[in-house]
Simulated scan of single mutants.
Amino acid sequence: MYSLNGLSPDIAKNHQVRKKYTIQLGENELVLKELDLLNEDANVYKLIGLVLVKQDLAEANANIRKRIEYISAELKRLDGSLQDLEEKQHSKREAILKVQQRIQSHQAGKAKA
């Protein structure tokens, strides 16, 4: 069970991870656009560690598309998780508000007595 205070760090972390994936998605979409501009016989190199390795254009294109698909799926998952966390946070706030109202009405009833 989540406490109201426990939800805030989870929501912040979700936003942070989502921002990272959004940046990666933009970078990969830019790479895909650049690959689409190339001729079929163009040389494409992939940076692996400190070494540039020659890669087939079709393979590079397929890899980028898979990466974009993966990142998009992760963003969708994060959006669902964020929505769930925000719903839990809203529910906790409503429960706290109801308890506060009961306490106030109880104290008002004591004051009249």
Rank of each mutant, 00 (worst) to 15 (best):
K66W: 05
S8F: 01
A58H: 12
L37E: 06
Q104P: 02
S81F: 15
R77H: 15
K76Q: 15
L85E: 01
R102Y: 12
K13M: 03
I11E: 03
R77Y: 15
L97F: 10
G6M: 01
Q83I: 11
I11R: 05
D41Q: 07
K110A: 11
E27W: 05
L32G: 01
H15F: 07
K110P: 03
I103T: 06
V17S: 02
K46N: 04
S8Y: 02
E40K: 06
A111F: 14
E74F: 06
E74W: 07
N63V: 07
N61K: 15
G49Y: 04
L4I: 08
A95S: 12
I96L: 15
N5R: 14
N5C: 03
Q24C: 00
Y2N: 02
A42G: 06
N14W: 04
K76A: 15
I68P: 06
S72K: 11
K88R: 14
L97M: 13
H90I: 08
I23S: 00
L82E: 15
M1K: 09
H106Q: 14
S105Y: 09
D79Q: 11
G109Y: 11
K110W: 04
V31R: 04
D84G: 05
L47K: 12
Q83C: 03
S91Y: 10
Y45K: 08
G80R: 08
G109T: 12
T22G: 01
N43L: 13
Y21V: 00
D36N: 15
N28P: 03
S8A: 09
V53Y: 15
Y70I: 09
Q101S: 04
S72G: 13
L85T: 03
M1R: 08
L25R: 05
Q24W: 06
V17I: 12
N61S: 14
L52P: 09
Q83S: 10
K98Q: 12
L30Y: 05
Q89G: 03
A12Y: 01
A108D: 09
Q55P: 02
A73L: 11
Y21H: 08
R18I: 00
A60W: 08
E69Q: 14
Q104I: 14
P9C: 05
R18C: 01
L82Y: 13
E34W: 04
K66S: 13
I11S: 01
K112R: 14
N14S: 10
L50G: 06
L30D: 02
K46Q: 10
E74V: 09
S3N: 04
